[in-house]
């Protein structure tokens, strides 16, 4: 309840008016779970913008997957991240990657949830796409029927880059591609995903950051 109010009264007005979106391909967003939405990651705003694209009724089904070491570093932040934002915390240390790390995600998918995943693993340099980690392929190899929907953001790294706490408004592009299905191989699936993002990125016509 609190979660839905948070998104309705705070996040939606912030995203729609203060930032302002230019959405292309909204029809590709999943209308029910299980599904995984995969996005590039430049800002804390990514999650909030992505959540605001979905109808209010789907909010209880949506769960961003987030790093436990960052969001659970103190009790208050953890309570906020889990109960209000609705994250599923995971351990991102490589040693813990397989097996148990993914267990909560598999459970959520089995319950028909929609997961939001940032395969870069971290926000990285503003407006630069980092290399994708293959966790999403591990997940899919275990649940091959779950559709993957790529979402590309352009501009949120300008609004609120990593390490900044002052939000500066910019219009933001959100490009959504049709769902990709699991093709049986981790390597070729990751290549397919990167390709889908390249295509989305090339369709953006906003100016890049100047050098320097």
């Amino acid at each position: 309840m609190l979660r839905r109010l948070f998104y309705l009264l705070l996040v939606k007005p912030l995203v729609l008016f203060l930032i302002g979106l230019n959405v292309r391909g909204r029809e590709h967003l999943p209308t029910s779970g299980p599904a995984i939405v995969v996005a590039n990651h430049n800002s804390h705003l990514d999650t909030l913008v992505l959540m605001s694209l979905f109808p209010q009724a789907l909010i209880p089904q949506l769960h961003p997957v987030a790093a436990a070491d960052y969001f659970c570093r103190n009790r208050w932040l953890k309570a906020f991240a889990v109960n209000i934002i609705g994250i599923i915390p995971i351990d991102r240390r490589t040693s813990a990657r397989d097996g148990d790390t993914l267990a909560p995600l598999l459970t959520a998918l089995d319950q028909g949830k929609i997961l939001i995943l940032f395969p870069e693993g971290t926000r990285g340099q503003p407006e630069q796409r980092g290399k994708f980690k293959s966790g999403v392929a591990h997940l899919l190899s275990k649940r091959p029927d779950v559709p993957i929907i790529p979402v590309f953001f352009n501009g949120l790294g300008k609004c609120l880059p990593k390490g900044e706490f002052v939000l500066v408004p910019f219009f933001v592009d959100v490009f959504i591609a049709p769902a990709i299905a699991w093709n049986g191989s981790r390597k070729s699936f990751m290549a397919l995903l990167e390709q889908a993002f390249d295509a989305l990125q090339n369709s953006a016509d906003k100016p890049r950051f100047e050098e320097g």
Binding site: P126, G155, K158, P161, E164, V166, V168, F170, F171, V172, K206, P207, R208, F209, E210, G212
Partner: peptide
């Protein structure tokens, strides 16, 4: 949003 801006000028 249209013009190029510098990261430093946030």
């Amino acid at each position: 949003s249209l013009i190029p801006t510098r990261r430093a000028d946030h």
